[in-house]
Amino acid sequence: MMIKEIITVILLVVGCFFFLAGTLGVLRFPDLFSRLHALTKADNLGLGFIAAGMAVYIASPWAALKIFFIWLFTLLASSTSCYLIARFQKEQNHSKNGKEGG
């Protein structure tokens, strides 16, 4: 019983650390691409560790499977939106450079 709770706490703390680091990155990084990197890291790893912690805490295979799927869908959605934002920014940069050059 104790071991389970200790593992849960460790996983949650690690997850919170990644969210904190990601938030710091979004606030402090200089440009959009590095900010996106920080944000998706926080999403993927932070949420992953917190989900793992919750799965350990609940300790039921069905709940664990559901939590895993939540993480998976968030992963898919966040990486796709990250890609779309990055692509948009890249296109903006391109068109700006094109205008300045010509």
């Binding site: 898919l76 796709t80 779309l84 692509r87």
Partner: peptide, 8 residues
């Protein structure tokens, strides 16, 4: 036109 977006 974007293949990734379409797949998602």
């Amino acid at each position: 036109q974007d293949p990734l977006l379409r797949q998602v």
